[in-house]
Structures are given as structure tokens and as C-alpha cells.
């Protein structure tokens, strides 16, 4: 399992600026340099994974300190999925890049350039290709 980010966050180390990410074609990139096309092309190569569009429908960060519940509408069937994440957890928004509920905290803890995640943003998510 990957080590965690330095003190203040328990997010995985691969979200820290400078982390090296391997795309499906073998190319190496820094996490902060990833583009939408990198994810799309990697998913096209993958035999198991496909990318779904997940639209942010609601963000509730009022209940638990440093945590937020993000509700998504996933895929063409618009399935409703809610996830509880730390407010600094970065999602990748189509055509925009890394975004989180609290971009200041993401930048402070991970040094990852980040914008504010908002209702209506379309995030990249994964599903299995042959899910029955």
C-alpha cells in the first residue's frame, strides 16, 4: 500500500505534487501534469476499466470536520452515488484538472494545484467494462 501524505492528511502519497504516475501506454508523468486525455487514452487501452462521467450534484461539508459528502450522478444511467471524502481529496474534472472541496487545504497539504470543486462539475470516475 502506498504511504500517506505528510502530517495533516491521510491521503495517499500519489496525490502529492511530483509523484510519478504511469499511464497505460507506459508513459510517466507527474501527477500535476496529467491531462484529461491521459485518463481517456489510458482507459481506452485498458481491457478492464472504462471512464464514466460523474456530475457533482451536491456537496455537503457542514457536518463532519475536514470531511465532505459529495453526491454524484454517474454514467449514462445517472446513478446516484455518494462518497465521504476528506475535504482536500482531489477529483479530476473533465477539461479542467484537479479540484477539491477545499483547494487551499489541498495545495497546503499536497502542493497539488487545485481548483474549487463545484456542483455541476463533471469528474472522471472509473467502472469495470464488463460489469453485468
Amino acid at each position: 500500500a502506498p504511504s500517506s501524505a505528510p502530517s495533516g492528511s491521510s491521503l495517499p502519497a500519489y496525490f502529492i505534487k511530483g509523484s510519478i504516475i504511469q499511464l497505460a501506454d507506459g508513459e510517466l508523468k507527474h501527477v500535476e501534469d496529467l491531462k484529461t486525455e491521459d485518463f481517456i487514452q489510458s482507459a481506452e487501452i485498458s481491457s478492464e476499466l472504462k471512464i464514466d462521467s460523474s456530475t457533482v450534484e451536491r456537496i455537503d461539508d457542514s457536518h463532519t470536520h475536514n470531511f465532505a459528502i459529495v453526491q454524484f450522478s454517474v454514467g449514462e444511467h445517472r446513478a446516484q452515488v455518494s462518497v465521504e471524502v476528506q475535504v482536500e481529496y482531489p477529483f479530476f474534472v473533465f477539461g479542467q484538472g484537479w479540484s477539491s472541496c477545499c483547494p487551499d487545504r489541498t495545495t497546503q497539504l499536497l502542493e497539488l494545484p487545485c481548483t474549487k470543486l463545484s456542483v455541476g462539475d463533471v469528474c472522471i470516475s472509473l467502472t469495470l467494462k464488463n460489469l453485468r
Binding site: P2, Q22, L34
Partner: peptide, 25 residues
Amino acid sequence: NVEPRSVPVFPWHSLVPFLAPTQSD
């Protein structure tokens, strides 16, 4: 002396959340 350390390389799909809807039986 600084010992060379291997740099971890993470697969691209680590960065993307799985948001598969729960299958209802």
C-alpha cells in the same frame, strides 16, 4: 553519503475513484 532510493511509480487508475453504482438484488 546518500543512498540511491527507488522512486515509487503509481498506476494511473490509482488516482481515479471507482464510482460504480451499487447493484440491487
